Computed example of a mutant assay.
Amino acid sequence: MSTALRPAAKDRTNRENAVDDRPPHICVCVPTYRRPLLLGSCLCGLKAQDAKGFSYSIVVADNDVLQSARNVVDDARRQSSVEIFYCVNSIPNISRARNTALKHARGDLIAFIDDDETPHPLWLTGLYATYVQCAVDGVLGPVAPDYEGTPPRWLVESRLCERTSLPTGTPLSNVRDMRTGNLLFARAIVLGDEEPFDPRYGRTGGEDTAFFQKKLEEGRRFVWCEEAIVFETVPRERQTLRYFVRRAVLLGATAATRERRLGLSTIKSVAAANLYAVALPFALLLGYHHFVKVLVKDCNHLGKLLAHLGVKVVRERSST
């Protein structure tokens, strides 16, 4: 991608700086829940950002009424020249935590990163440069797994922990490629939204999918930045088949809440669930990692179908 600003991007930059000569400000929002060690690593990475062409601050939204993140934030604040603000959301709900962070954020741009992720030093710079060059409403980037210990071979070969990878500047139109764990967007796109992240998905997951679906329907444009990478810690408790099966069932059940019970998507899930079930023994012959991938896909569709029947095998996501 050319480094020269497109005319639309120049106009946007001029508008942002029309009031004064200060550079644009990015507020990085970090929702957290009882993961102080991981949060500490995340904040270390955020404090070390090589900011070019903008200033930035950090807002940590603690989703724990016991304020387990307060000491970590206080320690980080004492050792940083970057402004770090701490706030508490007393009801465990990831959507409410994200909304609380947004209410305390300042600046023209908002970034989101998860508390179990550590950003590359050029993370924000990459997101911001792509935002300006492409003249869009938001930019997303890749999330690479950082395994605790030596992961099982089937997990690495199945690539279940690997996320989307696309050329920088690629437009995004499928919510399956869009998550809030690595995101930058113009604050203007949430102005007027009392609760940009729907609390109904705050205990099950899927709040980011609902957010992006709404914004795409509003005509907002998002692109990809492959260089703006963050690394997600994958603890040992997430390196089990049970974890991925449980997550797949819950994601399927959550998807069912956004779809009509007798719609085309349900028909497709009925067909897919049967096809994947038949394919399981053949996948096993090809290798255990193939079996796992097919099983997880099957469980996703089964979770959706069971939810449509009023049966929810898994009701909340794990806090790990």
Rank of each mutant, 00 (worst) to 15 (best):
M1G: 10
L5W: 04
D11S: 14
A18P: 07
V19M: 08
D21N: 14
H25R: 15
C29G: 00
Y33M: 04
R34G: 00
P36K: 11
L39V: 05
G40F: 06
C44L: 15
S55A: 12
Y56A: 10
Y56M: 05
Y56L: 02
A61T: 01
D62V: 08
D64R: 08
Q67D: 06
A69W: 06
N71I: 11
V72K: 10
D75Y: 13
I84S: 10
F85S: 15
S90D: 09
P92R: 09
A101P: 05
I110W: 02
I110P: 01
A111T: 09
F112P: 00
F112I: 07
I113W: 02
I113S: 03
D114Q: 02
D114P: 01
D114R: 07
D115P: 08
L124C: 05
L127W: 07
L127Y: 09
A129Q: 11
T130A: 14
T130R: 07
V132P: 02
Q133N: 13
A135L: 01
G138Y: 04
V139I: 15
V143E: 01
V143C: 04
A144T: 13
Y147T: 01
E148V: 08
T150M: 07
P151K: 14
R153N: 12
C161W: 04
E162M: 13
L166D: 04
P167H: 04
P167A: 11
N174Q: 11
M178N: 04
G181H: 02
L183N: 00
A186F: 11
A186I: 04
I189R: 10
I189A: 06
F197L: 06
F197Q: 02
P199M: 09
P199I: 05
T204S: 15
G205K: 06
D208I: 00
A210P: 05
K215M: 14
E218K: 11
G219R: 02
R221K: 15
F222R: 07
V223S: 09
I229E: 01
I229S: 04
I229C: 08
V234A: 00
P235K: 02
R236Y: 07
R242I: 14
R246E: 15
V249R: 12
A255M: 12
A255K: 15
A255L: 08
T257A: 06
R258Q: 00
L264G: 07
L264T: 11
T266R: 10
S269G: 01
A271M: 08
Y276P: 00
A279G: 09
A283G: 15
L286F: 09
L286Q: 13
Y288S: 12
F291S: 01
V292A: 14
L295K: 04
K297Q: 13
G303H: 10
A307K: 06
E316L: 00
R317S: 09
